[in-house]
Simulated scan of single mutants.
Amino acid sequence: MPELPEVETTRRGIEPWLRGHTVKNVCIRQPTLRWPVPDMIGALEGQVVHELTRRGKYILLHTGAGVGLIHLGMSGSLRIVEADLAPRKHDHFDLVLDSGKAVRYHDPRRFGALLWAEGDPLQHALLRELGPEPLDEGFDGDYLFERSRNRSVSVKAFIMNAHIVVGVGNIYANEALFLAGIDPRLAAGRVSRERYGKLAQTIRQILTYAIECGGTTLRDFVREDGSPGYFKLELKVYDRAKLPCVVCQNPIAQITQGQRSTWFCPICQI
């Protein structure tokens, strides 16, 4: 599933093709994604895209008439193609531009979304309750420590909660906890302020480096030009069950937490 680095990589990749260009046509081939594509998405037609921003895992296309919200779901990707290129199976919508290019959305599982917001998009029902961005000022160990008090949920589930902090999905939660030396099974309320300081630092470090690498390609994610992300080559614990820890050589353990797999080193993470 595309996580924050993959979404940010996509945003950066497609922005030069969209900024300052007019959306000539919105071509919807599949009107029912995770939610039905709203009729008012047609308001994008004839609009100049002023900028692309990101909030959590949503890409926001800002125009004078409103803001288009795109979510990549579990298997979605956006690519820049020639507008007249024949669509493949699972190519669900195109934003056709005045340049002759199109932004094409591909999603085999149809868990993504194309939505519309008028007014402040950050007040949209899907965005207004989200936690802070992990790469922004204000996200630090003190914030995590204060929000974690008296919480019995595991620290891994805590940092994956989008109401606490956005964009820390399963891949990067595993990797950040490993670098911070924190056992993912620990109750969030039992982690000290000092250790949360380290964890906030490793979350920021992991996400920043993953963006520089173009994200992580596991099964479905590719960048806007179709090329893979290379952070997979840097993974220390994720999907490495029984392989030696890169620090202590002890086998990496794998457990299930909240219906998701967790990988960690029983020696290095305490």
Rank of each mutant, 00 (worst) to 15 (best):
I255R: 07
T53N: 01
R11D: 06
E194V: 15
Q254A: 13
S154L: 14
Q30V: 15
K198W: 10
R195P: 07
Y105M: 07
R79Y: 02
V96P: 01
R195K: 13
H92W: 03
A241C: 06
V166Y: 08
H90T: 04
K232M: 13
E51N: 11
V168N: 02
G64V: 00
I70S: 02
G189L: 12
V23N: 02
L122A: 10
F139S: 06
L233R: 15
W116D: 04
V7F: 03
R219Y: 12
L177V: 07
M1Y: 00
R190L: 15
R128E: 12
S192E: 11
S192A: 06
C27K: 15
S75D: 04
V153P: 00
E234F: 15
F145K: 02
E224F: 15
G42I: 09
T63D: 08
G189E: 05
L60Q: 05
F111L: 14
Q257C: 10
G215N: 08
G138K: 11
R110Y: 00
A180F: 09
R88L: 14
M74E: 01
S192G: 12
A200R: 06
L199T: 03
G76E: 05
T32D: 14
A157V: 07
Q205V: 01
R109Y: 09
I203L: 12
A125F: 05
R55V: 08
L18F: 05
L127N: 05
V81F: 00
P108Q: 08
L122P: 02
G189S: 11
G66S: 05
G167T: 02
N25I: 11
T53C: 06
I59T: 05
G100A: 09
R149G: 06
Y105E: 02
W116A: 02
Y209H: 14
I270G: 13
E175N: 00
R109P: 07
L199V: 01
Y209T: 12
F221V: 03
P244S: 07
M160D: 08
T217P: 01
K101R: 14
D84K: 13
L218C: 03
G131W: 08
V26S: 08
H50C: 06
G56K: 01
G112H: 09
G131V: 03
A102N: 04
S192D: 05
G189K: 04
E82P: 10
P5C: 09
F158S: 01
V49C: 14
L127E: 04
V168H: 04
R147M: 14
K57I: 01
G20M: 10
H124L: 08
R219A: 11
M160Q: 12
C27N: 12
E15Y: 03
I182Y: 11
G112R: 04
K236H: 14
S75I: 10
E146M: 13
I14A: 04
T22W: 05
L207P: 05
K156D: 04
G226P: 11
C248I: 12
K236F: 09
H71G: 00
V237M: 04
D94H: 00
D140C: 08
G64W: 00
A113M: 14
G141W: 11
V247I: 15
R185D: 12
L52H: 03
E194Q: 15
Q123V: 12
Q249Y: 12
G189A: 07
